[in-house]
Simulated scan of single mutants.
Amino acid sequence: MDKKIANYIKTHKELILSRWKSEMKEQGDERFVRVVSNRVFDGASQQFIDLIVSNLMESNEEFSQRLHKFAENVVHIGWPLNFVTQGIRKFNEIIFHGMSEEGVVTRENYMEFTEGFDKWFGPMNDEILSTYTSTWERTVTLQKIALKELSAQLIPVFEGISVMPLIGTIDTERAKQIMENLLHGVVKHRSEVVLIDITGVPIIDTMIAHHLIQAAESVRLVGAKCMLVGIRPEIAQTIVTLGINLDSLITKNTLQAGIEAALEMTNRKIVGVEVES
């Protein structure tokens, strides 16, 4: 039974790949399919089919190595888990349908072939999903660590003036880290004015606004003033729509405008200097 399935897959590999790509593009998430280029999608699809075929011919160790490489690749390009599970199921359907069309699967041996497919695809399906999930979890953990290390640092730009650039989505855990870094930096750099730059924050909701207001209040309690800069038009519209009250915060639309205002607040200003020719 396994030999018949293996022979069909090996002799119809290109046809299976073509059908699989076509049907997965039709059924896949439109946003994902649109973002991933045809070259990347074709390459990952070929790798996926090769992975399943290799399970027929390679040792467990070789298959495991190929599987881990595939998992790392699809996690990197952003294949969702449901896309992977659909892909495995669709591959199964294409093979079974193709073998039925050629008369390999008949009414007489239908149950026997069904049991053969389950016996072959079941363990492989479990192993693929397990490896994909562990790879995805490891990737997300590493990204969180990197984001934590790279973001939310208070940077002194002038005497008494510091900037904290924020990048990416802010959740409760990050908000706590921001607060700690902010208060520690204000004391360390003896900041009089702190600018929180949200240019790189894609979304501002009620929870994030609440954390920013808390941060501003904490800065005020340690003797400094807080300013929110980098408010883009779409962010301003969201803040108004949600009814978020930022009256306790000084706001500016750009970092440059914020620095100019901070200089005025510390009795300084930027002046032009004429250079003698």
Rank of each mutant, 00 (worst) to 15 (best):
T131Q: 11
F121A: 13
I5G: 08
I161V: 11
D126A: 10
I170E: 07
T133M: 13
T238Y: 07
N7F: 08
R66G: 01
V40D: 15
R190W: 00
F63M: 12
I203R: 05
I208N: 02
D247H: 12
H211K: 07
R232N: 04
E149A: 13
E173K: 12
T106P: 07
T11P: 01
V74W: 04
G28L: 08
E234L: 03
V163T: 00
R220D: 03
H12G: 08
R66I: 07
S130V: 03
I128R: 09
E102V: 09
L129S: 04
F48P: 05
V193D: 03
M207H: 06
V35N: 11
N82L: 09
H97Q: 14
V186G: 03
R190S: 13
A146S: 13
I16Q: 11
K3V: 08
I203S: 04
N245F: 03
L255F: 08
C226N: 00
T131F: 03
P123L: 07
S54C: 09
L263K: 00
E159Q: 06
K21R: 14
V201N: 02
T114F: 09
S64L: 09
Q65C: 04
F158V: 01
M124S: 08
V53Y: 15
F113Q: 12
H184P: 00
N125K: 13
K188F: 05
I155Y: 02
F63Q: 11
G116V: 06
E58C: 06
N245S: 07
S100C: 06
L17Y: 06
T131M: 11
N60F: 04
C226P: 02
A262R: 05
H97E: 15
A257T: 06
E173Q: 14
I239K: 05
I235N: 07
H211P: 01
E276G: 02
R107E: 14
V163K: 00
L255Y: 05
G185Y: 03
G87A: 10
G28C: 10
G98C: 12
L183E: 02
V201S: 03
H68Y: 10
A261D: 13
M227E: 02
N38L: 07
T114L: 15
